[in-house]
Amino acid sequence: MAIKQKTIDEQIIVAGFGGQGVMLLGKIIAQAGMLSGLDVTWIPKYGAEVRGGTAHCMVRVSNLEIASPLVDFPNSLIVMNKLSMDKFERLLRKGGIMIVNSSLVDSRATRSDIRSYYVPANRIASEIGDVRGANMVALGAYLKARPFLKIEKIVEALRDILPSYHHKYIPLNEKALSEGARLVEGRS
């Protein structure tokens, strides 16, 4: 596998409101990473409130043994709301990528030493049929910008993580992933 030749050391923060599926998004990345034979860690951080409060998770995926599971300075950032962008943009490493849910964030990145992708995740997910797929649109965009995991592994991870009574939504999730990827296509 050519993808394994390089050092993979993804340090990701996924952030948003509680209820936007940011924890699940991080878990799917971690599960897909593990299914690809990589070392992975996932740490949740949320307030006492769940729905509506701010939440983020730290995910690390590496082809080397992960020493610390904590992410002080991410090299990839997925922000699903404005508050999260305000909080985490400054922590992003130079040259890192930021996926911005432009349906809920009306401002642009303040830094020029990072690569930002504006993805109207809520709008696209609604058009596909369910706004709850916004996280998958963002994930599709992220993996297009940073192709270190195969989409098949993401789908496999969805099957592992989602309870079986939700498996009927997997095709919808796949559609959301590919729509997200399409938005990033040809851009750098």
Binding site: A30, G33, M34, V40, T41, W42, I43, P69
Partner: peptide
């Protein structure tokens, strides 16, 4: 709390 709540392979 880190060890308890973190997921790891």
């Amino acid at each position: 709390g880190i060890l308890g709540q973190m997921m790891e392979s």
